[in-house]
Design a protein around this nucleic acid. Structure first.
Lengths: 109, 109
DNA sequence: TTGACAGGACACCGTTTGGTGTCTTATCAT
DNA sequence: ATGATAAGACACCAAACGGTGTCCTGTCAA
């Protein structure tokens, strides 16, 4: 259905707190260029760029060049796999959520 | 509220496919001893034990000694953090799920 | 009581990870 | 035309990861 050309495991991609922060930042705007993202972190541009590459490999981010800057955009849909995975186990931490889980499963179909 | 003594990031703990497989196995039974878990994998006992240690550090697993064997048990509740995290982004991959998300948020309180 | 089994504790190893710095190229503004 | 900015492409590095094998101890069964 959607893009399954991800070379990188989504669970692996979201394991790093810096990358989750990047996702959070990208969720707050249409597009953000690398230098602007870099400004939000203590680390250098190269490191941030590497994290974005990993997110790209997982299909969580797309990029396009505009002038001299590279702008990044969030594509959250691969996170659905995480959602599907975790919802299964929500039965195990609370029983009164099981009604909601059934709702979710219905909606998935 | 619940145990927050986790030395290890939950997202990090579930990043490895072997560890997700361990969680899956432990979800299917009350308790499973190490040697029995090891039998399900190709790798050796030491490796499986290390993975279980990581899961333990994330609070996802508890263990108890019974005779000469160490039995492991799933504690899924730290996965709630993952659920909370991913639910936020479900707005970004589908708009007709937002009703369900509101349901989830209500239930969380 | 002897042997087999379960598993903790190490030491070890190759690869990956997460960062750095530097060099170069392309682009924009003056 | 010149200088500053954006970022790709590397080389490099220490530390963590994901495995291995070995040794030792405790426990169960014959």
């Amino acid at each position: 259905m959607s893009e399954n050309n991800q070379l990188r495991d989504v669970f692996d991609a979201i394991a790093d707190p810096t990358r989750r922060q990047l996702i959070r930042l990208l969720a707050g705007a249409e597009e953000i260029p690398l230098h602007e993202l870099t400004a939000k972190f203590q680390m250098g541009r190269t490191a941030v760029s590497k994290h974005l590459t990993i997110l790209k490999e997982a299909g969580l981010v797309t990029d396009r060049k505009v002038g001299r800057e590279t702008r990044f955009r969030l594509n959250a849909s691969p996170l659905r796999e995480v959602q599907d995975w975790v919802v299964f186990y929500s039965n195990f931490w609370s029983t009164n959520l099981s009604r909601l889980n059934r709702l979710l499963e219905e909606e998935e179909e």
